[in-house]
């Protein structure tokens, strides 16, 4: 409850500072609208915002599930296969040097204006944090525990599934929490580059028509969804790893 109180206080403070800046600078509302104006726009445009939010949420959730599954599979594969570690790991690390944003136009070209290209953006942006965090956790299993498993006559597979995997769940949780924050970024960038729906599209549209209050309202909904997803994933991974400090 203490946490909820803290969040409420900092929210009120942030809105207060925002309003103060608007008053103090006298900046026109088509440059920076005040919080109340954004709220009004949110209420007035609620059906429109929700229509677009649905699309973005669907892209993010589908991307999250597929990206997380791919990342986890890759980590397990890297763990069991020395060849994969030798040849795949360098490619994966190098691929991180390519900004995912730079791929958005080409993905749109290949996959079209629909949600597919945005889902792929979300997958690409979360794949590496999930794979690398999980792989790290799998690899860092206590060597003493692994020795013990060997004296107990455990097979490689059962050592992986019954020791390395549960021991790596906290690291997987960190990867998934990062993914929860990154996935919406991927989807929105995809929408900016080319789409006719989604919160990213709506924000661009509102911006272009100088409806900055609508832009902020859409941004606010996006942020709220991201925070909710992060909290949900955080709670789920905490449940899975209630044993770790």
């Amino acid at each position: 409850m203490r946490k909820g109180y803290d969040i409420a206080v900092s929210f009120v403070l942030a809105v207060g500072v925002w309003q103060l800046v608007v008053w103090a600078t006298g900046v026109p509302h088509y440059i920076l609208p005040g919080p109340y104006r954004v709220w009004q726009s949110f209420v007035f445009n609620f059906p429109l915002i929700m229509e677009h939010a649905q699309i973005t949420i669907a892209e993010v959730l589908i991307g999250f599930v597929i990206g997380a599954a791919l990342g986890m599979t890759t980590a397990m594969h890297l763990m069991v296969s020395p060849a994969a570690r030798r040849f795949m790991l360098p490619v994966m690390v190098f691929s991180q040097a390519v900004p995912v944003f730079a791929l958005a136009p080409i993905l749109t070209l290949w996959l079209g204006y629909g949600i597919a290209s945005k889902i792929v953006m979300a997958i690409l942006i979360i794949y590496f944090p999930v794979a690398s965090n999980f792989f790290d956790g799998l690899r860092r299993c206590d060597p003493g525990l692994l020795d013990l498993a060997q004296t107990m006559g455990a097979s490689e597979t059962s050592t992986l599934l019954r020791l390395r995997l549960p021991a790596a769940l906290p690291s997987l949780g960190s990867g998934l929490r990062l993914a929860a924050v990154y996935a919406p970024i991927g989807a929105v960038i995809g929408e900016w580059v080319g789409s006719s729906q989604g919160l990213g599209y709506l924000m661009l549209l509102a911006n272009g028509r100088a409806k900055i209050d609508l832009m902020f309202a859409a941004l606010f909904v996006l942020a709220l969804f991201t925070v909710a997803l992060h909290a949900l994933v955080g709670r789920a991974s905490k449940r899975m790893t209630d044993w770790s400090g």
Binding site: S155, S158, L163, W243, S244
Partner: peptide
């Protein structure tokens, strides 16, 4: 070398778990 995610009972049974 106890598995922190298993309770005491399951830790004692670790060998059987690992051998299936």
């Amino acid at each position: 070398l106890l598995a922190p995610w298993l309770n005491i009972h399951d830790n004692v049974l670790l060998g059987a778990r690992l051998r299936g």
